[in-house]
């Protein structure tokens, strides 16, 4: 597929889909009832974004594939989500910090896409932006409070920040398609967002006695479909029915 907007839509859709899939596993298992409801809400928003982005990707591709086929019938190497989204739900601290790091990137990214030149991209970005502003508010407020909460909550949030940091950079990895999108005025280069996002995270950490890791190292390759081992398990579960009973109407 030569149209670089296909790759942009796929990358945005895959990020939202994989993170929503992971978060939705907490439904019924979160630490408080309010949190159970809030996290399910965030997952629902992300699922809605995934439907729109993958729908756009399918339209641009124009080969008769649907958003569902993109979600349920591609294998790991065809997914373009950042490695951060596929990190396992180890505990609630990891889940919350994963969401927090993602939200900070997501809001900035959508802000830039809203200002882009392609109307089909702008429309989705504008709709998602309103919801993600709330996601960012919620996750940062929780991370700040728990960072400056009990000794244990501080340690858990700090550990989660450190364990996820090498995967966070994956959101900012430039691909060949990104250079084409950049030249066409559709989006900025992913790497160009990093400084701004890290500044915001640093400001949050300053309010909560947390220390933001300063390493610039991150695991690369997601933009070429090189993922961590966990993505295979996520897809095995998510795609189970579509793979077992192909061509069924659900």
């Amino acid at each position: 597929m030569n149209d670089p907007r296909f790759h942009l839509a796929l990358r945005m859709g895959d990020n939202s889909l994989i993170l929503a899939q992971q978060n939705s596993k907490w439904c019924g298992h979160a630490p408080t009832l309010e949190e159970d409801i809030a996290l399910a809400n965030v997952s629902l928003d992300l699922m809605g974004h995934a439907q729109m982005w993958l729908g756009l990707a399918a339209n641009i591709e124009a080969k008769g594939r649907t958003a569902d086929e993109l979600a349920f019938l591609r294998d790991t190497q065809e997914f373009r989500n950042a490695l951060l989204c596929e990190r396992p739900n180890i505990d609630f601290a990891t889940t919350l910090v994963r969401q927090y790091l993602f939200d900070a990137w997501h809001l900035e990214q959508l802000g830039l896409l809203c200002a882009g030149s392609d109307i089909s991209v702008v429309e989705i970005a504008q709709k998602a932006f309103v919801e993600v502003r709330y996601h960012r508010q919620r996750s940062s407020s929780l991370v700040i409070k728990l960072g400056d909460g009990s000794a244990e909550s501080h340690t858990r949030i700090q550990n989660a920040l450190e364990s996820l940091w090498p995967y966070f950079g994956s959101l900012f990895e430039n691909s060949d398609n990104d250079y084409i999108l950049f030249k066409a005025g559709i989006s900025e280069l992913p790497a160009s967002l990093r400084t701004r996002v890290v500044e915001q995270l640093s400001a949050d950490c300053g309010q909560s006695t947390l220390t933001l890791p300063d390493s610039l190292f991150y695991h690369k390759g997601a933009v070429q479909g090189h993922h961590t081992e966990n993505l295979g398990y996520i897809l095995a579960e998510m795609q189970y029915l579509q793979r077992t009973y192909p061509s069924s109407n659900w």
């Binding site: 939705s24 399910a40 629902l44 439907q51 659900w250």
Partner: peptide
Amino acid sequence: QLPEGNWIGRAPTLERKAILLAKVQDEAG
């Protein structure tokens, strides 16, 4: 929430997944 939550991860389409998640979330509500 638990018996239905058991299938959120395996719901067969994006729409079914969203509906099921919304439903189980309603139960929490």
